[in-house]
Design a protein around this nucleic acid. Sequence first.
RNA 1: GCGGCUAUAGUUCAGUGGCAGAACGCCGCUCUGUGGCAGCGGAUGUCGUGGGUUCGAACCCCACUAGCCGCCCCA
Length: 564
Amino acid sequence: MSTNAGAPQKRPTLKAVRGTRDLLPDQTPLWNFVEATARGVFARYGFGEIRTPILEDTSLFARAVGEETDIVGKEMFTWEDGLREDLRSLESDWRRVHADLLDVESTFTLTARPIAWTVATIEGNLTFVEFRVLVPKTPDFELKKRNSELKDQGTLHRVVVPNWRMDLLDLTAYEDAGIRVEALSGRHVAKSESVSLRPENTAGVVRAYIEHKLGETGQLQKLYYIGPQFRRERPQKGRYRQFWQIGAEVIGPQSSGSESALRDAEVLQMLAALLDELGIRGWRLDLNSVGSSEDRARYNEALRAALAPVKDQLCPDNQRRAETNPLRVLDSKDENDQAIIEGLPKIADYLAEDSREHFQQVLAALDACGVKYNLNPRLVRGLDYYTRTTFEFTVTTGLGTQNALLGGGRYDGLSEMLGGPRAPGIGFAIGEDRLILTLQAQAEEDARVARESGALVSGASLASETWVPAWAAKKLDAYIAPLGIAQNPAALALAHELRSAGLTVEVGDGAFKLRKSFDVADSLARNIILLGEDEVATQTATVKSFASGEQKKIARAELIAVLR
RNA sequence: GCGGCUAUAGUUCAGUGGCAGAACGCCGCUCUGUGGCAGCGGAUGUCGUGGGUUCGAACCCCACUAGCCGCCCCA
């Protein structure tokens, strides 16, 4: 029994970590609508689902996305896997060496625990661990005497270092503090590896393509995924640290036609179809070609050369980019720099003949499909693996400045960058969170228009039919209200019967007053089923429709047919 | 990572130094087998967290945390 039982315990409230969020049941119907629509469209275009791990080797992203990109350089959730084992190994070696100190008496065991590992890693390796011997408090005179001996020997507080790391320590600092430093021989660093939460999914899919030798089938691989990605960015609307992407990749050996411009156009046409089917309005497709990696290298040189003489006039951000990644200067929004940017060389002039031809074929195929696009020579994707066709779909509703709904492009060299066979490919990633924000903003817009045009003023029931979007949650078929708790078992049995027949049913509680049952039923369901003493006795049910107000007593056998 | 704005009931918000509020929602009653309307009543709460100033802080100051807006970057 606690003496201060009356005082409420103060505990910090636990919240979802920064940039992550819960999707509650009022949200998930919309998410499921979006995902089901995407799966349906992808299936029609011959795509199969792939699920890759959320965790990958850090070097996968470093090689695919690019070591110097912001995503890999500063936005990944990365940690060393395996370090804990190293500590255990060092600790157990320490215990073995000092077994004589620890087992003072057979009845008392002293324990050693690591208390700090301030410089935990250098190059991913353990450097040192600080141990303190914890001595149990005891009235035993012999043990007390032993404790002070331990203290004199400096064993109560000492630093243990793997012997090949001694050079990393400032020994004198420890000696001045009266702390003994000792080296332990042996290798205490188990192989540890750096792993990261995936910041995007293309690298993982291509890794899986290589690992499972999907190229050996000779077939063109069309793969789609839906899943969470992670980037340690500053959260904002439409930008979360855990965010969802719906993406697809077309990849295969050259003989499978993976490099064909037809595939670029097919992917873009599929995206247009998907956005239309979802009901996204006013989307815009921006399209560009960044050429082969050779084209890009030559263009980069030209940009550098053109930027060098005017660098001083640029804003600080662009000065930095001119050094690190001249391509990115192109999509700068800085107003003062626009004149200079307009005068820079155009990528189109640096495309080799085959890249130029490939791009023309893409455009021709899009024209044939009737997909509208906007040529944007300044559209440059940030990820290292993109070659040739790059694209982006933007919207104007609901996203503020995060208006890019999806982005993608061709990545003909990615597989080889990862040590795989030549496997040209093209893919995209849709920001699902942004897609959903857009749909919600559109629905709000529609509701506002309906209100202003008077559709809602004249009668809510009429208007609700006209503008509620397809993904809005449907009402249950029936709500069963037992009258009195004696009817609860019969109510649950009836619910089971109806549910088995495929009806959506909620069951109330006989303890509720009838008024409450009606309130709850009206908010949840299209019909209420009253189940009182006489209904149970006569194998009937009283059904009332909320839409018509009509009420009938119906034989149990006919109930399912009536509710359908 | 940088700059700005914000944080009060389940929700939307009011409250500029002196008793913690409104609307909606929720619960109860009017009304124990017929709801939606209406009337009456009720509960909302670490006022984001921690410190400071003050006789006294939701309010002023500082720090932190989180969200939003912009930058950066990207989906």
